[in-house]
C-alpha cells in the first residue's frame, strides 16, 4: 500500500513495563513504528493492550521504559502535553463530555491547538467571533467526515452507542494527531457497522497521512487492514510481524485457544 521509504521511526518505545499490585500488566514492551503504518495490537482480555495506550498517553506512568515520539522523549509527560505533541486516542469504555453537545465535544478537542486570550473572550473584538465561527466550521467538517453531521446539537450521551464511538474518533482527530490510538473502536457494533468503520479508518489514514495503532479483538478485522500486527498475552509481547506471519505463529494460536476467546 504505502511505499514510504524506511526513515526514522515516528514512535520508538523500549522496555515499557507496568505492574498493578503484583499484576504485571505490561512487561518489557518494545515498538519501533514507522510513519503511516497501521499497526494492529491483539491479545486476549487483560493482556495489557489498554494499559499500553494508557502509558503512551500519559494516563498511567510506567514503572520502567522510554517513549520517544517524533524525536521527543515523552516518558512521564502529562496527558495534555502528549496530546499536543501529536498522540491522540479513543477510550475502550467511551469517555465523552456527556452533558455537552456533540459539536462542543469536538470544539474542546479542536481548541487545544488554538491560543485563547482571556481579554479576547471577555471583550469580544471581531476577532473572537471570527475564531469561534472558524472553530464551528472545522468541527462541522470533521463531524461530517465521521457521519455525525445530523446530530451536532444533540447532547453527547443521547447519541446511539455506535455513534458515540465515532464521536470519540472525531474528537481524537480534532486534536490533529500524527499518531492515532484506537482502543477497540468497533466494540459493540454489528459486523456491517464494524466493516464500515474499518473502511473509514483506512480511508482516514490515507487522507490524513496518519499513523495508527489499532486494538481490536476481532482477528479477521485486524488481519484485513493492518500492515503489521503485535500480539500481547499476560503483558508479554509474544509475536510480531505481518498478519500472515502472526496468524501462523504457534504461540499466538495457543494464547487464543488457551484463553478461549472468540
Amino acid at each position: 500500500m504505502s511505499t514510504v521509504p524506511p526513515s526514522a521511526p515516528l514512535l520508538y518505545v523500549t522496555q515499557l513495563s507496568k505492574a498493578f499490585r503484583g499484576v504485571q500488566a505490561l512487561h518489557e514492551y518494545a515498538l519501533s513504528l514507522q510513519p503511516y503504518t497501521l499497526l494492529g495490537v491483539i491479545g486476549p482480555n487483560g493482556a495489557g493492550k489498554t494499559t499500553l495506550f494508557n502509558i503512551l498517553t500519559g494516563v498511567v506512568t510506567p514503572d520502567r521504559g522510554r517513549i520517544v515520539f517524533d524525536g521527543r522523549d515523552l516518558t512521564g509527560a502529562a496527558p495534555d502535553a502528549i496530546c499536543r505533541a501529536g498522540i491522540a486516542r479513543t477510550f475502550q469504555n467511551i469517555r465523552l463530555f456527556r452533558r455537552m453537545s456533540v459539536l462542543d465535544n469536538v470544539k474542546v478537542a479542536l481548541q487545544a491547538r488554538q491560543s485563547s486570550h482571556f481579554f479576547t473572550a471577555v471583550l469580544r473584538p471581531p476577532r473572537f467571533y471570527a475564531q469561534e465561527r472558524m472553530l464551528s466550521e472545522r468541527a462541522m467538517a470533521l463531524l461530517a467526515t465521521l457521519g455525525l453531521d445530523a446530530h451536532t446539537n444533540l447532547q453527547a450521551d443521547a447519541l446511539p452507542y455506535g455513534l458515540q464511538r465515532r464521536l470519540e474518533i472525531a474528537m481524537a482527530l480534532a486534536t490533529e494527531p500524527k499518531l492515532l490510538l484506537l482502543d477497540e473502536p468497533a466494540a459493540g457494533m454489528n459486523p456491517t457497522e464494524a466493516d464500515a468503520l474499518m473502511h473509514l479508518i483506512v480511508h482516514l489514514r490515507d487522507a490524513l497521512k496518519l499513523t495508527i495503532i489499532l486494538i481490536e479483538h476481532n482477528m479477521r478485522v485486524v488481519m484485513g487492514i493492518c500492515e503489521r500486527v503485535q500480539v500481547l498475552n499476560y503483558g508479554q509481547l509474544i509475536a510480531e510481524g505481518t498478519p500472515e506471519e502472526v496468524q501462523n505463529d504457534l504461540r499466538v494460536l495457543q494464547a487464543y485457544l488457551g484463553a478461549n476467546t472468540r
Partner: peptide, 28 residues
C-alpha cells in the same frame, strides 16, 4: 462571556471528565 468561550468549554469539559479532557489537550 467567559463561560460561552473556549475557556468555558474547557471548564465544562474538566467538570464532565477531567482525564478525558486532559487527553484532548485541555490544560486541566
Amino acid at each position: 462571556r467567559l463561560v460561552n468561550s473556549p475557556f468555558g468549554r474547557d471548564m465544562i469539559a474538566v467538570r464532565e471528565d477531567e482525564l478525558a479532557a486532559a487527553c484532548r489537550g485541555v490544560r486541566v
